[in-house]
Structures are given as C-alpha cells and as structure tokens.
Amino acid sequence: MSRQTQNQSEMNRKANLPDSGAGEKNTLRTIVLRQMQKNQTGTIKSISATGDLGRRIRELGLIPGTVVTMHGKAPLKDPVALRVMGGTLTLRNNEADTIFMEVD
C-alpha cells in the first residue's frame, strides 16, 4: 500500500476512534478492522479507502452494514482473513486499517 493511504488510515484512526459510535447503543464501540480479535464479529461502519483499493474492497462485499467475522491472521500477523457473506477474504493490515467496524 502507498504511504499516503497508510498515513490516511493513521489519521482516521486517531480522528475517529475516541468518540464515534458513542451516540448509539451504549455497548457498541468503533475500532479498525485490524484490532478485531479472532472470531470476533462486527458490522462495517465506514470505509475510508478510495481509488482502486476502495473499489475492490466494496466490490468484494465489504460495504457499510456487512457483518464480518475475524477468521484469523497469517503466521506473521499480516495479512488478516475475514469471513464475509459465506466466503473468506484476506486483507493486508494497512488495508484493513481503512475499514471501521462496530463491535460489541
């Protein structure tokens, strides 16, 4: 991934994390996809990736509202594998950082 996207996701994480999701059900938190634990399930809240990556992520069904379960991580902790709509998708960590999840 380009440095730009990485920075962007870095920024998003800082900007969005502390307060977003606070207004909804009190148990819901927003985290980036990378931070999900194995077998944890959540719903996609927003995606900050644009361009080719953003389009590809969406084309594969990762859109706001989709339910995603963390399937596991590669032995070197990157990339991650997700269960989405009955299939398994993989994403590198810096790509996963562009996806914001709502979890319990």
């Binding site: 590809r56 594969l60 790509e95």
Partner: peptide
C-alpha cells in the same frame, strides 16, 4: 504501489 492483497481464500 503494491497490489492490495484483497483476495479470496476459496473453500
């Protein structure tokens, strides 16, 4: 830039 690793793990 590297190609995203957004791919499917087929069953």
């Amino acid at each position: 830039a590297s190609t995203p690793f957004v791919m499917e793990l087929p069953p």
